[in-house]
């Protein structure tokens, strides 16, 4: 069933795939993010309790969801690399890591900026924010481990192991932090968990979610291309590519 994927184990094919996908990802991301953001900022109703500061949700929730989604994608890439020995899988993993970390940072930053008007403090140790912070540490660990090895083949495998250890731990961390939070915060319900969200608010949220996801895809294709060029410096097709690029500039 997965035979159509097999050509992408080769770096040249993977590179071509990136080139094909890139414009679609950028176009889609731009479209969705524009529509979603404008809708959310100007046209969606304000929240009964939180007023207009609620509009931060249109960034906070998508980035939080995708920060976890990207980590899972990284772990899947690591698994593919480990089981089928595909270098391109490891390269995709490390291409995704920085953008995943950026998404996590955005979730944390917008969480804090939202929390200040809501709870009066820039930072509270609520379950969601604490879990996101730990997720950021996991990202930094994978990136740091990859950077510590000279041999990038080895680096990919090592970072892959940590990505998998991390992904197994994410549900454990989430559950334990949530439980820890109930111990220490008592009965306060997190404002981030909105029980029912009106449809006028749901649509811009979903559109932004798609927009952010496409953005992640776009940046990942660029970074994957970079990683491929870096690792395949001496291959003739890379040399030809570089010539084209430089000549195009002149």
């Amino acid at each position: 069933m997965w035979k159509w994927l097999h050509p992408y184990a080769k770096t040249e094919r993977a590179y071509q795939l990136c080139i094909t996908l890139q414009p679609w990802f950028w176009a889609g991301a731009l479209l969705c993010l524009t529509v979603g953001t404008v809708w959310g900022l100007a046209f969606a109703p304000q929240d009964y309790q939180q007023g207009d500061s609620f509009r931060i949700i249109y960034i906070h929730v998508p980035s939080a969801i995708l920060s976890m989604g990207t980590y899972v994608a990284m772990a899947i890439a690591a698994l593919v690399g480990m089981v089928w020995q595909w270098r391109t899988a490891y390269m995709s993993m490390i291409a995704m890591a920085p953008i995943g970390a950026v998404m996590t940072f955005i979730a944390l930053f917008t969480g804090a900026a939202w929390g200040k008007p809501m709870w009066g403090a820039w930072w509270v140790w609520d379950a969601r924010l604490t879990s996101e912070l730990i997720l950021l540490f996991l990202y930094m660990g994978v990136i740091a481990l990859y950077g510590a090895f000279e041999d990038k083949q080895q680096a990919g495998k090592a970072a892959g192991v940590m990505a998998l250890v991390g992904v197994v731990n994410i549900p454990i961390i989430h559950y334990s932090v949530e439980w820890w939070n109930t111990l220490h915060q008592g009965a306060t319900i997190s404002k981030f968990d909105n029980p029912s969200i009106a449809p006028e608010m749901l649509w811009p949220l979903l559109i932004n979610l798609l927009g952010f996801a496409l953005f992640i895809g776009a940046v990942t294709t660029v970074r994957l291309r970079n990683e491929i060029v870096l690792r395949e410096l001496h291959r003739p097709w890379v040399q030809a590519l570089a010539k084209q690029h430089v000549e195009g500039k002149r």
Binding site: F137, G141, A144, M162, N169
Partner: peptide, 10 residues
């Protein structure tokens, strides 16, 4: 330490 501390949090 960077790799292991998040994993030890639970």
């Amino acid at each position: 330490a960077l790799l292991l501390i998040p994993v030890f949090i639970p």
